[in-house]
Simulated scan of single mutants.
Amino acid sequence: MKTYDSNNAWKLVNKLLPADFQLNENTLPLEEEWIWKGNKMHLDRYPNSASKYRIFLHHGVGTNGRLLNMIFGHKMAELGYDVVAMDNLGYGMTEVNQKNITYEDWVISFSDFVNAETKRDYKKPILYGLSAGGMITYNAACYMDEVYGIIGMCFLDNAHYQVINDTSKYKHTAWFAFPFLGLLSKTPLRTMGIPMKAVSKMNHLVNHKEALKILLHDSASGGASVQTQFLASYASYRSPIAVTAFDKCPILLTQPEKDGWTPIELSKLSMAGIKAPFSIKTLKGAGHYPMEEQGLKQLIIYANEFISRL
């Protein structure tokens, strides 16, 4: 099994976090793998047999499960929650053994994992998603047998042109770039790799300059490439349950105050008219991938309060 011992980027970023959030040899998660359609999906786990809830973490297109456990997972585990983060196809330490990867694969693999875990060892599932992971948790929840709450750092529905336009690296190019990718995805070039930092605002992934440099050169996170068909399917994906009909669980948006990639207006647009209870909390001084102490502490407080009210 491929482990995070082989990756240096998270270790370097970890040293840049506030001291109270840095992982050490006593707070590292257990590493496991879960087989999905022949792929070895990497898991970072903090098990707790006494917990009533299990929190499932999903990264976006510039992070991975270990990076999420650094700022969120291990602190929630300290509060007594069972926590597990999955690296999806092409990210983190997951070993991919399929040729074609689409956004729907990400959605279905995550929903399958939550369903399987809940059946294997029952705990009420809570979902947490950072960046694109926010909408992935929502999309995946539509296929889940049970879900009790969703916490997202943003929710981006590409059905709205403003969302896909404002999150693209070059504004006003989405109208022709993504249809072109759609055409390529129907050709042998569908598996061609495209660096995410070439098409998205990855330069706003984190507001810490040194950490940004590290992550942009890390092929397991901010420096990862995705297939042409993944980008095309991500841009054209439509959730099986519209927000106006979604009432499976309450949702909390924890919006970083100084997020230069996905401002709150995009999440409000994406979730407008949602049927489920929807609340918003602002993380003071925090960037897209928050490393700022005040925002990180607020994230843990708000998440714990949200779950305690379910």
Rank of each mutant, 00 (worst) to 15 (best):
I164H: 07
I164C: 06
I164T: 11
N165C: 10
N165T: 07
N165A: 11
D166S: 01
D166Q: 09
D166P: 00
T167G: 04
S168P: 00
S168E: 05
S168Q: 07
S168F: 02
K169I: 11
K169A: 13
K169P: 03
K169R: 15
Y170Q: 04
Y170K: 05
K171D: 05
K171T: 02
K171V: 02
H172Y: 09
A174L: 06
A174N: 07
A174D: 09
A174T: 09
W175V: 14
W175R: 11
W175N: 11
W175K: 12
W175A: 14
F176L: 13
F176I: 14
F176V: 13
F176R: 11
A177L: 15
A177R: 12
F178R: 05
F178S: 01
P179Q: 04
P179N: 02
F180E: 07
F180I: 15
F180T: 13
F180P: 00
L181H: 02
L181D: 06
L181E: 02
L181V: 06
L181M: 15
L181C: 10
L183K: 11
L183F: 13
L184A: 09
S185Q: 08
S185M: 10
S185F: 07
S185H: 05
K186I: 11
K186L: 14
T187S: 08
T187K: 07
T187D: 03
T187C: 08
T187G: 05
T187N: 05
T187E: 02
P188K: 10
P188S: 12
P188N: 07
L189W: 06
R190Q: 11
R190E: 02
T191I: 13
M192T: 14
M192A: 15
M192G: 03
M192H: 08
M192F: 13
G193D: 06
G193L: 13
I194H: 01
I194N: 00
P195L: 07
M196D: 06
M196Y: 09
M196I: 15
K197E: 11
A198R: 00
V199R: 04
V199M: 12
S200W: 02
S200T: 14
S200E: 03
S200Y: 00
S200D: 00
S200R: 02
S200N: 04
K201Y: 01
K201S: 06
K201P: 00
M202T: 13
M202F: 06
M202H: 08
N203H: 04
N203R: 05
